[in-house]
Simulated scan of single mutants.
Amino acid sequence: MRIEIDHTTRYRYPEPVTDSVNEIRLTPRTNYRQSCFHSEVTVTPAADLFSYEDYFGNRVHAFTVNRPHKELIIRTRATVVTVDKPQGQDLPVLPHGEQLELLQREAFRDRYCEFLLPTRYTEITEELYAFAAQHPLEEAKGLHDWASRLSSTIYEEFTYDPEATSVHTTVRRTLRLKRGVCQDYAHLMIAVCRSLGVPTRYVSGYHYVGDLQGGNADFEQASHAWVEVHIPGTGWLGFDPTNNTEVNWRYIKLGHGRDYQDIVPVKGVYRGRSGELDVTVDVRRMEQ
């Protein structure tokens, strides 16, 4: 499916600010499930963009606005074609016993160590172990089935509540509240997987839902977050516990990391008083 994204980030300040240094990670990746055919970034006030790939292979654009300004606008546009078939199709699948054996091998754990270690967001606690005990790895039919069931459990047992948490919320607090947003759901699933030795990474991107809104285009859209679980012998597969589904053609991936901190869409520093932030996202399906 051909999908077009228009993402605008606007900062307004009460008085002129200077020395604004920024990084943005808003360029869709190209992989076996999607191809980014066009991507552009514009900044107002105009600034030179420096582009590079970070440690995780995410495309980063960096820029600096030194002169005084009361408004900073970052706009990205992209056209992406996604694959309309179930993820994992035509990929190899190992017997569950071999999957579990691979998880224990030192070479495997060394290869994926970044996605096995806990972080500030995905801390492993006694409460987390108790939650993870609902789905023992050994009793699953396979790791794909196990990850799918875990995603469903998070969806069923937690309440989506944008007012309950913030971008700084950790898994410990999410477990206590039993509510949160896509970022919290993703961090929780990551923490459970890592606590059992299953490599898992945080993914940021977009979720096309335009045709699910009854033809109403006047609904608020936003960036989205989900997870990718490494299935030994198969590879990385995506799961969205917020919507209780696996990644399909509706998902456009921007990048991945250990947690939210690695893949913040827009971040920076500047000299001056704090201002207001406004973000608008338009994700639409185009005619083929």
Rank of each mutant, 00 (worst) to 15 (best):
K178T: 10
H96G: 04
V209I: 14
Y202E: 04
A191Q: 03
A132M: 07
A140I: 00
G97H: 13
P95H: 11
P95Q: 09
Q104Y: 10
Q104T: 13
P136M: 09
P95L: 12
R109H: 08
L128H: 05
G97S: 12
R176G: 07
L188Y: 09
S195L: 05
C113S: 14
G210V: 10
T174H: 05
D110G: 01
F131V: 08
A133D: 15
A140G: 02
H96R: 07
E123V: 14
H168Q: 15
H168K: 12
Q104V: 02
R179M: 10
T169E: 06
R105W: 12
L116C: 05
A147E: 03
V167C: 05
A133G: 08
D184Q: 03
R105E: 15
E98D: 12
H187E: 05
A147D: 00
R111V: 12
V209E: 12
H96A: 14
Q104M: 11
S195C: 08
Y185W: 13
E114A: 03
T169D: 04
H187R: 04
V209K: 12
L188F: 11
C193L: 13
D145E: 14
R173G: 01
Y185V: 08
A132F: 09
R173L: 15
F108Y: 15
R176A: 11
K178V: 13
D184M: 05
V209S: 06
A132N: 08
Q183G: 02
A140M: 00
Y155H: 14
E138N: 05
A132C: 06
G197R: 03
H187M: 06
E98T: 15
E156N: 13
D110H: 14
S152M: 04
V181Y: 03
A147I: 01
L102M: 15
A147M: 03
V171E: 07
A191V: 05
R176H: 10
F115P: 05
E114F: 15
Y208F: 15
L100H: 07
